[in-house]
């Protein structure tokens, strides 16, 4: 496989795969392997099944790649598959069920804007997250991971979790409030 293909955008690589070339898929795996492992590690709280689940995510992506709409973002699509794989895994283990109708998605919320001071906030928050994430509910934990650690936008997170964009903002806000409470209780400043 040539360097030229390697430098193509995700969507152009997918186009090649859809046309019948299998090899470029490995570029996509290389690009997202680390990110998905980190996503899975944070989301699932354990390292045991992560390799298998990430592998399963990529295999599902390959099997269903003909359904990918080239007008959309590949990363959101791949994260959506990962999200489903991880949620199904959690359901199997009956750890944390994600409900079909959640009050956050049911009602309209004022659109929460993305923060312009995200970068400055990031370092401090990452340290805090390491400590507090494990204690958050899955529905609050996941958008925080995707936004602060995977660098996805609210719109991308909305596509991954299939929830309204405003709900993403609400959940991130609540997650931060919950984290603040957790840190306060543990006297972690």
């Amino acid at each position: 496989m040539d360097q030229k293909t390697k430098n193509l955008s995700d969507e152009l690589i997918v186009q090649l795969i859809q046309k019948g070339q299998q090899e470029p898929f490995s570029f996509l795996v290389e690009r997202y392997e680390k990110k998905l492992k980190s996503y899975a590690y944070r989301f699932l709280n354990n390292q045991q099944d992560i390799e298998d689940l990430v592998q399963e995510t990529f295999i599902k992506a390959f099997v269903n790649i003909q359904s990918f709409d080239l007008e959309r973002k590949f990363s959101s699509w791949l994260y959506r598959i990962a999200h489903n794989t991880f949620v199904n895994h959690l359901k199997k283990k009956k750890n944390d069920l994600v409900l079909f109708f959640d009050a956050d998605t049911l009602f309209p919320h004022p659109i929460a804007k993305e923060r312009p001071d995200k970068d400055a906030e990031l370092k401090e928050l990452q340290q805090m997250l390491d400590y507090g994430l494990d204690q958050l509910d899955a529905k609050y934990k996941e958008p925080v991971i995707l936004y602060y650690l995977q660098d996805l936008s609210y719109q991308d997170i909305s596509d991954v979790m299939q929830i309204p964009v405003s709900t993403v903002g609400v959940r991130i806000k609540r997650a931060k409030e919950n984290l603040a409470k957790i840190f306060k209780e543990k006297k972690y400043e």
Partner: peptide, 13 residues
């Protein structure tokens, strides 16, 4: 994954 694809263990729809 590359090995599985080559062996034909995984096929796309």
């Amino acid at each position: 994954i590359q090995a599985k694809l080559k062996e034909g263990k995984v096929e796309m729809h």
